[in-house]
Structure formats: C-alpha cells, structure tokens
Design a protein around this nucleic acid. Structure first.
Lengths: 269, 269
DNA sequence: GCTGATAATTCCGTTTTATGGAACTTTGTT
DNA sequence: AACAAAGTTCCATAAAACGGAATTATCAGC
C-alpha cells in the first residue's frame, strides 16, 4: 500500500478533513471525503478519538476536532501572534484602572509575559515582553499554573525559588495552597511578593476545551491599585479574560459541551 | 507491549514535547524527555517530518512544530472568530472606496463570506455573511482557490457550474486560465460574472506557512467601482490583506535568535 | 589536522500492528 | 415489520513498527 506519505499521512488527511467541516462529519462522510475504505476509516477515527485528537459530538457518530489537538495548536503559536489581538483589551483595562495591564502565556514550563500596556502617566515603568515570570511570585504565573496538570506543577515546584521580598512565598506547601486558592477563587493575587510596594492581579483565560494557556492581569503600586475594591478588579479582569478567550481561535467549530470521559473503553485486548 | 494508548500515543507525546519547547529539540533531547529508545524516537521524528507536522530548524538536527499544524489551526477556527478582527480593516476600505468590503474563507471545498461592511449610502449588498461564493464566478473565491493544491482545484472544477450572466465563465480551461492569472497577478477580478452590473476585486491573504485560506475584497456597481484605477484598488487591497495576515495568529515558534535579554530585575508582577 | 566522545543515523531480524473486504449489528425510515 | 443505510466487528494476510547494535557524522580539545 505504500502511497507517498508514511503511516501518518492518512491520519493527517482525516484530521484536515474534519477541520474543514464546520459541523463535524460522520464516518461515511469521512469515507467519501477521503476515499478510505469503511473499515479503515472507522479504525482511524477510533485511534484519533483514543488520543483525544477528535471527539464525538452530541450523540456519538459525528466527529469534530478535540481539545487535545486544540491545546497543541495553541502551544505552538508564537506569543507575539496574540499580542495584536489583546492590545485593545489591555488598553481598555489601562483606561479603566490607570495601571499596567498585561497578558502572560505558558511556554514550556515557564510563564512569559507576551503583551503589555502601560498607562501614560508612569512612562518610567517600561515593558519587557518575553520576560519569564517567577512562578512562585507572580499572579500571572500562578493564574496559569493553577490549571495545569500535576506533572507540570510538580516539575515547576521542584525548581529553586528566590525570595524577592519578605512577602515572597517559597515553601512548597504554601505554594500548593496558593494554587488551590486560585482554582477556588478564579484569580490570583500577589501582594508585594515580587517587588516591594507592588500589587498584581491576574485571571486565567480558559480556552474552550484547551484548558488555560494565558492569563490577563494588572500590576501597579499597592497604594494606588489597592484602592480599587478587589471584587471590582476581579470582575473586570474576568470579563476581559472571557473576551480574550472568545477572540482567540479557541473554539473549534462547535462548542464541545460534553465532557470527555478519558479512555472509556479498552476492551477486546 | 501495547501500552495504554494506541499507536498514535507516542506521536502525540512527541508533538507535545516539541510544543513545550519553543526553541526546538534535538533527537537526544526528545529521547530524554519522552523516554523513547533512540532508534524509535528517530523514526518518529522522521515520520512527523515526512508529513510536515514538524520541521528541522536551522541546520538539520533541531525540530520545531511545522506549518501544517498551523494550517490545521486556521481551518478549525470558526469563521465568526475572525470577523471582529477584520471589522476595522473593512471599515477602512469602505471609507476609502465607498463600496462594500468583505472577507471570505475557505471552508472545506467551499468559499464562504465571513464578514462584510456595507457603505451607509447603499443599504443593498451583494454578499451576505455565510453565503457560499460560487467558485467560478466570484473574485473572493478565485483569489483563494488559485492557491490551493491541485487535488482541491480538481474537485472544485468537477462540480457543475451555473451561468449567472453572459459574462460568467463556465469552461474548465477558461477557469484554469483565470486561476493562473490570479496567481500571476496576485488578485482576482470578476466583472459582471455573478450579478449584472456588479464588479468585484479580491486579494488572497497569505498566511505565513499556512498558505491561503482567506481573501479580502471589494464589491460594487461597475459604474462606480470601475471609476477607480485598478492599480489603486489592488494596491490598497494588497495592503489590507497583509495587515490581516499579520493580525492573525500565524507563525509558529520561530527560530528566534535574539532571545530573552534576561533583564535582571524590574517592576511588575 | 588528529583524536576521542557524543549525537545522529542506518541496519535488520523479530514481533506487532495495520489493512480492508466481508459479515454482522445497529439505527432510522416508510 | 420490513427495508435500507450507517456503523461496527472479524480475521487471514501483508506490512510496518520495533529497538538494540553497528555505523557514520559532528564537534570538542589538544
């Protein structure tokens, strides 16, 4: 059977066929579109479903691209690519709070700031997109890390931590508690943990089906930013995160509502 | 030795390992990160490279995610997601020409309009969002189709074609010549081929490494739109296409050389 | 340039898995 | 209920993956 590509060629073809179909495809539609034999197409779809690259929609016979693939694609996108998307949102935040607004992204096991807008009033505080945020002392990093899987969290927490200020939290148990709190509350807060006198908030950006890869936040002097009620800041950041999420090429064609019951069947073996 | 996942599990693992490494990984790094045997990892990387999912960087021994994955991302993006992005650009075009401006996207083997802005003066429009543009009689469709691969062009040209006006081109040879001209000139022009008295221009949007999936164009009455010199219309549409391309999340992680200036300490959180 | 270590690549006999046509089961329709 | 169409399972055959070992390329340091 050796056509041109290798064994993966037909998987890739199948994925692209599904990607091109806004509402998903049934087995027979895939067969027609790809020219694969029925049994073969069925097996390929099963294998793709097995690794979460595609997902059955609604009932069980219509397939769409799945969350795992979406996440992979997001991870692969260069940070700079999103900066133009979020610029207007960040500017709106700055206009609202007169503080620096920024977006951070998970890159490998680091969290990097990828876009930032600074209020005109304090021009001295310049921006360094690409800066790696310390995971234990930056709200932006905690907001993202809290929603990663255990393996990544373990890896991150196994690294050495600098005590930047007397507020910096360096104990592993402390930090795990922080992350738990972030998960519960839906936002992260760093109060002079990185720089003295500086306060920062960050909200995770939940990508539909792809988990959390970005956070959006505010930084400013505790004296000023602290004047705003926490609930107000968080509410507005949450709204911005939601808007950001929607503006990203997140959603695949159809909302993947149903949960993915990870590896439901493993029979016949 | 069939572990839990299927045969694809290790490919997925490899892709995710690479996705987590913005600067790419060598074979041995992949081996270390995944625990795969050397020979196996080498073979997997070769297969992934064979289908364009990963790409060797610089020399030949560092692998990063490839353009074909990026294309998958764009294909999977719901058309509505881009409309907010292009709205400002379309409005600028409308302000400039006082004609309807729109963006079309390749969806499967069809070209659909996904966003448009109509000049206030005339409430009438010739394009509605979601409308499938006939591939043989719409500049927007030709601008996209011209840059697809032969298989897709063949498929599209094998379908029946309606003769909308006496200018409509239905002959296969004619249409192939049209596409060739689009490739040469970098834009498509339909002069009363779809609706009598209506002229339309469209330029392809070239996505970095992902080919052409969108076009951006103008439609209007021949009498009015025809008054503008073709070179002027095309130049401005080209500029808009370029701007659009840059605003999209194109670009996978790049062989960025000037990496992390590693600023010692600065404020932020 | 020589040399020694490390990474990359190729080899190849063995074993596992994919393959796809056909048979079978489920689903949906008149 | 009967029929048609889609979905699923079966299975002998053929093909490809497998991975350890051997080979070649790459690159230090001398």
């Amino acid at each position: 059977m050796s056509k041109d590509g290798g064994i993966l060629a037909r998987y890739a073809m199948t994925l692209e066929t599904l990607a091109a179909a806004p509402d998903g495809l049934s087995l027979m539609e895939v067969v027609q579109a790809t020219g694969l034999p029925r049994g073969t197409a069925h097996r390929l779809l099963g294998a793709l479903r097995g690794i979460g690259y595609i997902v059955p929609r609604d009932g069980r016979k219509i397939y769409v691209l799945g969350p795992r693939l979406l996440r992979l694609l997001h991870l692969g996108v260069a940070p700079a690519a999103v900066s133009s998307l979020v610029q207007p949102m960040l500017e709106a935040l700055v206009a609202r709070f007169k503080e620096t607004a920024f977006v951070a992204k998970l890159v490998g096991a680091d969290v990097k700031s990828v876009a930032m807008v600074v209020p005109e009033s304090d021009g001295q505080s310049f921006v360094q997109p690409g800066r790696v945020m310390p995971v234990h002392a930056a709200a932006s990093a905690k907001a993202i890390l809290a929603f990663q899987d255990e393996a990544l969290i373990d890896e991150v927490l196994s690294r050495p931590r600098t005590r930047y200020t007397e507020n910096t939290r360096v104990g592993e148990a402390e930090l795990r508690a922080d992350l738990e709190q972030v998960r519960r509350q839906g936002f992260a807060l760093c109060d002079e943990e990185l720089d003295p006198g500086v306060l920062s908030y960050a909200c995770p950006v939940h990508l539909e089906g792809a988990g959390v890869l970005y956070s959006i936040g505010l930084v400013g002097l505790s004296r000023r930013l602290g004047d705003h009620p926490q609930s107000e800041v968080v509410a507005i950041l949450r709204a911005a995160a939601e808007e950001f999420s929607k503006s990203l090429p997140s959603g695949l064609h159809r909302p993947v509502i149903g949960e993915v019951p990870a590896v439901p069947e493993e029979r016949s073996g």
